[in-house]
Amino acid sequence: MKNSDYGIKLNKRAQLRDKNITLAHGSGGKAMHDLIDDIFVNTFNNSYLAPLEDQATFEIAALMQHGDKLAFTTDSYVVDPLFFPGSDIGELAVNGTVNDLAVSGAKPLYLTCSVILEEGFPVETLRRIVKSMQNAAIKAGVQIVTGDTKVVPKGAADKIFINTTGIGVISNKVNISTQNIRPGDVVLINGELGNHGTSILIARGELALDSNIESDCQPLNDLVATIIEACPDIHAMRDVTRGGLATVLNEFASSANVSIRLDEAAIPVQEQVKGVCEILGFDPLYLANEGKLVVVLKREDADTVLSAMKSHPAGLNACVVGEVIEKPEGIVLLKTGFGAERIVDMLVGDQLPRIC
């Protein structure tokens, strides 16, 4: 459904009567017309989408009102199952891309939505996912302005895959980069780790585990704005998704040629998540999250930023979890509860595939 898909000029609102997706819904004809108009255009309706051109067009001057630099990112979502405690693939596809923009210091503005549908996919399930995307976009303050649809034969894909690309704008007063990290900095996170990965694992029903753990999927752009307002001099920031906190911090340490020391006792993890990890041999440091970010900044700014984070619903459980030290370069260390230190390496393999 790129706007060329959206771009069939409509005399009246189409209504999709099919109960399942067929190959005809990707053919470019009336079936595709009805699918796009009823499910996508009707749900994502906004002034940028309304002209139904082959692209969304923006005035540069209007973008520049929000900042001086353009941020641009893309991500694809293949999570299984499509619906899980606390969220679903539609909300995940919006929040994931919004958060990728936000942690650069950008104000997210616009998203695309491209979907690959498997023949036979239920139309009502698609409708539910698209409505979830729109609700998430409204909550995050962004608009879905263009997209694309493809249908593949049954068995050529697994139900539905979604790609979202996002555009945002960054003020020239903000310079968030791993190259800014220095020894003496401290490391903050905004809450408990591992909820998303654990909720997906339990939702798959492959293990005899019962839990009320929900995904932490949420937009982080408003929290980031609160952080930057409190302290524009943020050295580095990243959302903690696949690979978990351990992988993000290894990337930071390697990029900045520093070492990062974590305090195991300071890292927040829900007791239920700890229990699942103990049963299955997982490490919460490597579990995926979809509503957590890590912030690296000067030690003298930590209290100010921590207070600001705790004032926001997405940062109520924010805390300091570590510090940046000079050596050994490129290494993440963990101070354990026994007082010893161990190396926390980057994730090797995948604890849980198709997590987002």
Rank of each mutant, 00 (worst) to 15 (best):
T43Y: 05
N46V: 12
G29Q: 09
A136Y: 06
I279M: 15
G141P: 06
V294Q: 00
P81N: 04
L352E: 01
A302H: 02
P81G: 06
E59N: 14
N180E: 03
A140F: 01
F44H: 03
D345W: 04
L293P: 00
L193Q: 00
K274P: 07
A246L: 10
K131F: 11
V294S: 01
D345A: 14
P284S: 08
G147V: 08
N175H: 14
V78M: 12
N3T: 04
L223N: 06
I39H: 02
V348C: 02
A102H: 05
H235M: 11
F83K: 04
Q351Y: 15
Q270T: 13
V273K: 03
M133S: 03
S254M: 12
T73Y: 07
G337M: 04
V276A: 11
I162R: 08
K159M: 13
L117D: 06
S76K: 02
G96H: 07
S199G: 01
A156C: 12
N250E: 08
L249C: 07
A140R: 00
L49V: 10
I343V: 15
P85H: 08
K69W: 13
V186H: 00
G243R: 09
T178A: 15
A56Q: 01
S76D: 05
V41L: 12
D75A: 15
T43K: 00
V41D: 05
L201P: 00
Y48I: 11
V151F: 09
C277I: 11
Q179D: 15
E290T: 12
G86D: 03
I116R: 12
Y110Q: 06
A50P: 07
A225P: 05
K150A: 14
G141I: 02
L111K: 01
P284C: 08
K69Q: 14
G275S: 15
N46F: 10
V273W: 05
I189H: 00
E53Y: 13
A56S: 12
A288I: 14
G7D: 10
V248N: 03
T43V: 14
P313Y: 00
L126A: 01
L287K: 07
I167W: 09
G141Q: 03
C113A: 12
G67Q: 05
K335I: 13
D80M: 12
L209F: 13
G28L: 07
F338H: 11
I189N: 01
N172Y: 09
A318E: 04
C356N: 09
D185P: 00
D80E: 15
I8K: 01
Y286M: 05
P232M: 03
T241S: 15
I144H: 04
A31Q: 01
L10V: 13
L193I: 00
E59Q: 14
G105W: 08
H33V: 10
G275A: 15
V41C: 09
F58A: 04
T73W: 02
L23P: 02
L82D: 05
A56K: 05
L117M: 14
F72S: 12
K19M: 11
I267P: 03
K131M: 14
A50L: 13
K173Y: 09
N20A: 13
S76Q: 06
T164P: 08
P313A: 02
N175W: 09
L306W: 02
E91L: 11
